[in-house]
Nucleic acid binder design. Structure first.
Lengths: 193, 193
DNA sequence: TTTGCACCGTAAAACAATTTTAGTACAAAT
DNA sequence: ATTTGTACTAAAATTGTTTTACGGTGCAAA
């Protein structure tokens, strides 16, 4: 078995267990046992349990970014359509990213500090990419620029992140995803000329 | 000392202690001692500790509602201005409502069920009053109605409540209150004709 | 209406005993 | 280079038990 396949299999098992039982209630022994690897192998590939968890989260985030990038780079969509697809897709993916949920929850009674860099990385990625969508809208004449693009991106992210907790931790996603269309209409129109 | 003054003094001390130390770390004995009342008096006026806490929260919420009502009923403001003042004022007041913060926090590891009725009451009040502001905007021709007013109010509340946790529990209020103007511009414009 | 005090039952804090678990070391195998 | 298996340690989590603190009551007196 190649080195990549071993690492992959560890990550895959870790992903399943972490998302099912959470970080603390999943042990390295258990991961090793189910992945049919020696514990030593886990530590050959990952520096620590936190490091392994971080990689799992990183993959969740990369998956998110890749799927969103498809939207951002789709030349068939105008800026409003992109914004709309972006918002809806983002929430839908995150809604099923169980490990990300745990890091959200953890913010309130403990801190997963070792995740912080991934978060800020995602933040910057989003700021950059939403910025590009807005810029496209401005260039095409769809949107009216009355503020800094940076600021607009931050506002959009602020809204998106604000909704994460009611949606994912208080299970309001189903209830409010109905109103999502309406919200995006307003935002999109709010930006438009 | 009149009955009202006794009750008032208990409430005032309870408010201070609860907001400083939280619900669990404030004891009825302590409240009685600092208010210079007998414990029996607390139970003469309030059925239980929860009941006392609920009154404290109720007062915070009434204060919020009263101040927002001034804005809603101000005949000098048009609908966009009202919406803007409403959003900003709401966040500013809630930012310093320490006991309300605790009930927010509590949502994640315990539940203050005895507060639920107050919450839903506030929710309904807000839906009603934001609805009136939007209606005013529609009537005056400022806003364009392309959806149900009820739905629009719910969306607005969804955003406002979504921001509560990052703002008040993760202390992002200072950081983002700068962008608040921009957000409101967008929302207001998103509703407008 | 308010006080002061003794009292009860329970829930949480504190403590100690026990078990799990992250992480290491290393010899052997591929 | 990569993987295994075992044995180990120090720290953390868990469990069971005891003690304490606290919400709440009852009541006589003012």
């Amino acid at each position: 078995m190649s080195i990549d396949r071993t690492k992959e299999s560890i990550l895959s098992v870790a992903d399943k267990l972490f998302s099912r039982f959470g970080f603390h209630k999943t042990s390295m022994d258990e991961i090793a046992k189910i992945a049919r690897k020696a514990k030593g192998s886990l530590y050959y590939h990952f520096a620590s349990k936190e490091d392994l968890f971080r990689e799992v989260i990183a993959r969740e985030m990369n998956n998110l970014k890749n799927q969103l990038a498809v939207i951002v780079n789709n030349t068939d969509l105008n800026a409003s359509e992109k914004l709309k697809s972006y918002f809806i897709k983002r929430m839908a993916i995150l809604n099923s990213a169980a490990n990300y949920h745990e890091t959200l929850k953890a913010d309130f009674f403990e801190r997963f500090n070792f995740i912080d860099d991934l978060r800020t990385e995602l933040d910057e990625w989003e700021k950059e990419n939403l910025g590009r969508v807005i810029l496209q809208g401005v260039n095409s004449g769809e949107f009216l620029l009355n503020t800094d693009i940076d600021v607009l991106s931050e506002i959009a992210i602020m809204i998106l992140k604000g909704l994460e907790i009611p949606f994912f931790l208080q299970d309001k996603y189903e209830k409010f995803s109905l109103h999502f269309e309406g919200l995006i209409k307003i935002l999109s129109k709010g930006l438009s000329k």
